[in-house]
Nucleic acid binder design. Sequence first.
DNA 1: CGTGTCAAAAAGAGAG
DNA 2: CTCTCTTTTTGACACG
Length: 270
Amino acid sequence: MVNFEDACRGNTQGMSFYHTRDQEENGDDDLDDCFRQPEKKRRLSVDQVQFLEKSFEVENKLEPERKVQLAKDLGLQPRQVAIWFQNRRARWKTKQLEKDYDALKASYDSLKSNYENLLKEKEQLKAEVSSLTDKQFHKENVSENSETSKPMEPSQPLAQPDSVPETKTSTIICKQEDLSSVNSDVFDSDSPHYADGVHSSFLETGDSSHVFEPDQSDLSQDEEDNLSKNLRHVVYNFPKLEDPVYPDQSADCGNYEFPVEDQALWFWSY
DNA sequence: CGTGTCAAAAAGAGAG
DNA sequence: CTCTCTTTTTGACACG
């Protein structure tokens, strides 16, 4: 447990918590509390906040006993302490949501760029295949013209397309790793989330291995939709979208709600 | 208790 | 520097 004496020893040399800038007003505290007048709002002193923060780190919930003790230690009303904890929890949660959102967005951006790369690669391979097909076909025509005794199926040019499939396979494997790791990392986040109070979700477990550079370039809405559709095919082993249960989707993700414009994120959680 | 909100206080920005 | 305006932070409260 954090001891207030320890917490502030040395920095204020025994100065009490009442040394706020409007110290002289603190004498009114009792009066104010009795009459609940619209009292002028006073901020807690740095030391008071520090002490509360330490206490919050230890345990973010406040049992009545501790509330009274803290209030006593800090020279505050128990209600003030309760309100402080309430606010602190709420604001901590907001920050956490922001963090989680950023991480999700980063994952999404990363997936998007992976997908775009795959598309490019696919186009290249397509071009390569058609050029090889043409060459083959051309060859056959030439040989057919010179010696008409050798009929051959023009549709077999893919028999040995060099080493192309090799590279493609490795690429795909790589992508799959990315996807599955992202998938598990991100959507495991509905595990104790803020529930334990002190420690947050997956994001606060230090710097995750998914530190992506946010890609600011944005696709148009059409492209975005197209991307989302197509990715359902790219994400090989994800559940299919045949029977979507939209209303429950939030349950899978810690009850988070995302802005409408970011709902494209859901495509890979279906 | 969580959530949303208000409003005072503090911090920041910029013009003169 | 200081005055003013804007933005951010934070203590408090109401409501469900």
